[in-house]
Design a protein around this nucleic acid. Structure first.
Lengths: 236, 236
DNA sequence: ACGCGATAAATCGTACATTGTTTGTCGAAA
DNA sequence: TTTCGACAAACAATGTACGATTTATCGCGT
């Protein structure tokens, strides 16, 4: 499939939660992206009439999209006062990184024991693109990094865990795109990916799991540090 | 608060995801319970008109409730074909138990380091009620057991993880109520709870985490075994 | 038994009514 | 003059009704 060099991260199969009415589905996606990408401010009111006008539909599809987003946790509701954008703040990001630290090692261990040579080739190919890009294009790195991990988690039998990972990843991807990578972090990412591939080749499931745990934790620490810095800059 | 002996499990604070319109909220809860408790069969069609008539409202609140349930994963949608009940089958249950095995130990370790003497007294009180009930009333055991773990996870700083646990727990509670506990499982539950309290008192966070891991895994194995048995009985 | 077309049924979008909330103005008291 | 509160008008959320379009059902003819 993605033989071209422009990578677009795709969800693991069977995850796509869309399927609403054509109108509703696209509305859901649009609003959701606006939230994740930060185009809608934290706690901003989501006025049904406005959204309907802005997207050229009537109010009902908007209302349904908002409920869907509520169920997924991106929107909060207060009775008779409508919807607001759930803030994607440091606590939010920390929470989902910590959950990742708990879940991803298990997914990784399973993958190591199930990996085919095609899987490994694919990982090495993506890793090649990552090193080639070398953080020049932040967006591209973000997509490639996501693709790298998707190869590992894609086929896991625990669809709930895989779906959870993907939903979290979509948020983190958008958040981390807003920042630059420190030199130290760049080096760590490349090193850890290479080390991970080595462990997979050797069939060292536990070592790979350990490594992923540190990888995710380091990634979380890095992003949170950046968020803190930006907040401090904004406040000071 | 719950000084009376009839326990009703309550969610950790700040979790309640309701807050829709008065109609919509209750509708959401009613349909959700019908799914979790198994009153609506797996893959059953959820016809908006029927649900509206049955609950004495118009269709719009139903549609919104269904979207909310979709976001939470209890309902699946196909475009132009409406909603169906997501089956709560063995895979589903296995998936969320496995996630529990990964997450609950971390929540437990944190609790052990934060537990006050009031917390411990509360745990011992609930454990007393559990032993007093001694599985005579399955429903009651289910509520008490949930309350026991809620005491531990309630105040965790990672609200996402606590919320995830609670949502999973609501499903598992309903599922496990459909079965009886084997004598072996009864003994294990009581023993592990007592042992857990001892670890908490001693401040042994890691041991408590280890124990919870086994506790959840054992619980999952037990429920899955029962589901398998019932399925086999139904098939044969 | 097997298409196949008519009919029934359900989803989905639109428009509207009702109810509750927010806002802004006016006037009186400090 | 400023502040506070009552009141009214605008606004927005929530519920209802309805029509258009798609999907499911059923009976008929082959």
């Amino acid at each position: 499939m993605a033989e071209t060099s422009d990578f677009k991260a795709e969800p693991p199969e069977g995850i796509d939660p869309i399927g609403a009415s054509s109108e509703g589905a696209s509305l859901y996606q649009l609003i959701r992206e606006d939230i994740i990408e930060g185009r809608l401010a934290a706690n901003e009111r989501l006025v049904v009439t406005d959204l309907a006008r802005r997207h050229g539909t009537s109010t009902n599809p908007v209302r349904e999209a908002l409920q869907l987003l509520r169920g997924e946790g991106f929107v909060t509701f207060v009775a008779n006062r409508g919807a607001r954008v759930r803030p994607i703040d440091q606590d939010f990001v920390r929470d989902i990184y910590e959950i990742g630290v708990l879940i991803e090692p298990a997914l990784t261990r399973w993958f190591v024991n199930m990996a085919t040579s095609e899987d490994i080739a694919e990982l090495e190919r993506i890793q090649g693109l990552i090193e080639e890009n070398n953080f020049a294009d932040t967006f591209r790195h973000s997509e490639l990094d996501t693709a790298f991990h998707t190869v590992m988690y894609q086929r896991h039998y625990n669809r709930h865990a895989a779906e959870l990972w993907w939903k979290h990843r979509e948020v983190l991807r958008a958040v981390s795109r807003r920042f630059n990578f420190t030199l130290a972090r760049r080096a760590a990412i490349l090193r850890e990916h290479r080390e991970l591939i080595a462990h997979i080749k050797a069939g060292n499931a536990d070592e790979a799991g350990e490594l992923i745990s540190r990888h995710v934790e380091g990634s979380g620490r890095h992003v949170l540090e950046q968020m803190r810095a930006r907040n401090a800059a904004r406040a000071g």
